[in-house]
Design a protein around this nucleic acid. Structure first.
Lengths: 334, 334
DNA sequence: ATGAAAGCGCTAACAA
DNA sequence: TTGTTAGCGCTTTCAT
């Protein structure tokens, strides 16, 4: 089944059918209706390959990410894919987890074979070669969560976010606050542990606290658990913990319990993310709306495809969500 | 840049370049090497659209799933996409979450526009129309986790898996075992809560226990938490709980703790899945390897594309993983 | 082993 | 508004 068949059935030329189906170029309402009806009747759908070859448009956006099974990434992906679908775009998934050879393949072969109109890169630290390869496509490129040199990027103000939660703890009266940060491995990938730590330290500097206790972990629940055990096991344990991610904060909450400490009475705990489970755990955190981030990235990409100007760097919104894991320090008890 | 340019540079015809690059048809090793070198030098990659139009092959598989942000689905997706990438295939993602209109669009427009060579449907209960639409493509179709009428399907023997964990609890000496199952909503989507409950009841029947306590939840941690509170709040609480998923089992473990009960001393808890967090929680469970399921689905799809025979229904492997959440009932204490 | 040439199914410039 | 027609870049048959 092809466009000629529909054209023949309706008694018009294939060009008219093409125009009616794509909405480009003018067709009389009556003809358009007849074409659409004929197509619907026969279950005819335009062949993407032929359309692409002739027009250069793919109606397809590639999304590149380092993991699929972590909360943040699946959220961004879900948000982006939903927006793209509504705009009639397919999404092709490039998952970089696995060894480096696969990563190279993606940049050398998969992306360049002209299947996509644009690329969204999520939390990707690209090396020079990779950057060149993407730039060489000469197609819209948007980064989410990680800075991409020379491309519009959506990113959280990690310093500001960390400063905000830390400020919340300080406002409650805490001065002895520990931080569970990201280890080197996670810093390479996401580049944000350092910034969150910075915001944490900035907020404390303001009240004259220097070099507070910082323990690094790997952004997982077990990692947060281990770090919190270290922190809470010390003789003069802090009255609050700020973890650089909600998952580590969950681990910290579990560790506190296992040590016989009650949250928030004995220790206040806060995180960053507003993970799906945070409400359940009553975790005070910074919400960063990753689904909206995905959707926003799509807006930029589509605007770019239409030739509109696209802002270089956009700071993403975030907000403090106070739940039951933080309270005033129980000074009497100490 | 196109194939003619490479052909000209090497001094052969475009047909030879095509053969050298695709590996179809014979080319002398020497010519092939020169073609590959010329392509590499210039960063030339075959245009997928043109290739597809001429050959009918897309090198692309569509994966349809109901959620992206749940553990099971992201695991299956990650497994499938990795295998496909290794075989040189792209993956196009069709996520059905959201309202029905989007779901209809996927089946009416997105999938039929001939971008994919095959479709993998994960845990989807398709209605007749949708089934017709997929069948009409006349392309390989494989179902994972949910039965698709008339297509090869990979599924866990849910009855057997549930019977196995329950048997483990029985072997430890438990006779008073409660079950956290799936509510109606999850039964429609996954069709597995009923089977898991069946396996649970079968195992108990064998030792003469009829109509045991069953509470339904929604396959989430909070759902499991609430259900377990109900179960453990009764005067003669059971000595063990079998939850139909690990996430619900996590909720049950948290509920037990909040009630002042110790796991496994006061109550044994087991689940099904072997979720990433299960090891951390020490949860006894049934491992079902969703990544391998995704990879296996790809094997079937690729075999089908090559014209090999494909088994209709395949039972997936599963195994009991005993950790620290289950032990013998403490009969002395009661 | 290689080349010539006919499509694959659509879009878009141009003409009417 | 509609039709004619020349590609888009590759694959594949058929020769050689």
């Amino acid at each position: 089944m092809n466009i000629a068949e529909i054209a023949h059935a309706v008694g018009v030329s294939s060009a008219t059918v093409s125009r009616a189906l794509s909405g480009r170029g003018s067709v009389s309402p009556k003809t358009r209706e007849r074409v659409l009806a004929a197509a619907r009747e026969r279950g005819y759908v335009v062949s993407q390959a032929a359309s692409t070859l002739a027009s250069g448009r793919n109606r397809n956006v590639g999304i590149v990410l380092p993991f699929l099974d972590r909360w943040f990434f699946s959220q961004v992906l879900a948000g982006a894919q939903q927006s793209l679908m509504r705009a009639g775009y397919d999404v092709t998934l490039y998952n970089l987890e696995g060894d480096g050879s696969e990563r190279r393949e993606v940049f050398e072969t998969f992306i360049p074979r002209q299947r996509v109109d644009a690329v969204i890169a999520v939390s990707l630290e690209l090396d020079d070669t990779e950057l060149q390869q993407l730039k060489a496509l000469d197609k819209p490129l948007v980064g989410v969560g990680g800075p991409i040199v020379g491309a519009p990027t959506l990113a959280l103000d990690d310093v500001g976010a960390a400063r905000l939660v830390t400020g919340h703890l300080i406002a409650l009266g805490h001065t002895s606050i520990a931080h569970i940060g990201g280890d080197e491995a996670s810093d390479v990938d996401f580049h944000l542990p350092t910034k969150r730590r910075q915001g944490f330290e900035d907020a404390l500097e303001e009240i004259g606290v220097h070099a507070p206790l910082v323990v690094d972990a790997d952004f997982t629940v077990p990692g947060g658990y281990r770090a919190a055990k270290q922190i809470l096991g010390t003789p003069d344990r802090p009255t609050a913990i700020f973890a650089a991610s909600d998952e580590m904060a969950f681990g910290a909450m579990l560790a506190a319990r296992d040590l016989g400490l009650e949250v928030p009475r004995d220790v206040s705990i806060a995180g960053i993310d507003d993970h799906d489970m945070s409400d359940f755990y009553g975790l005070t955190t910074i919400a960063q709306f990753p689904r909206s981030q995905g959707a926003l990235a799509v807006d930029l990409v589509l605007a770019d495809l239409e030739g509109s100007a696209v802002p270089t760097d956009t700071d993403l919104p975030f907000e403090l969500v106070v739940r039951s894991s933080t309270t005033r320090p129980d000074t009497a008890a100490r």
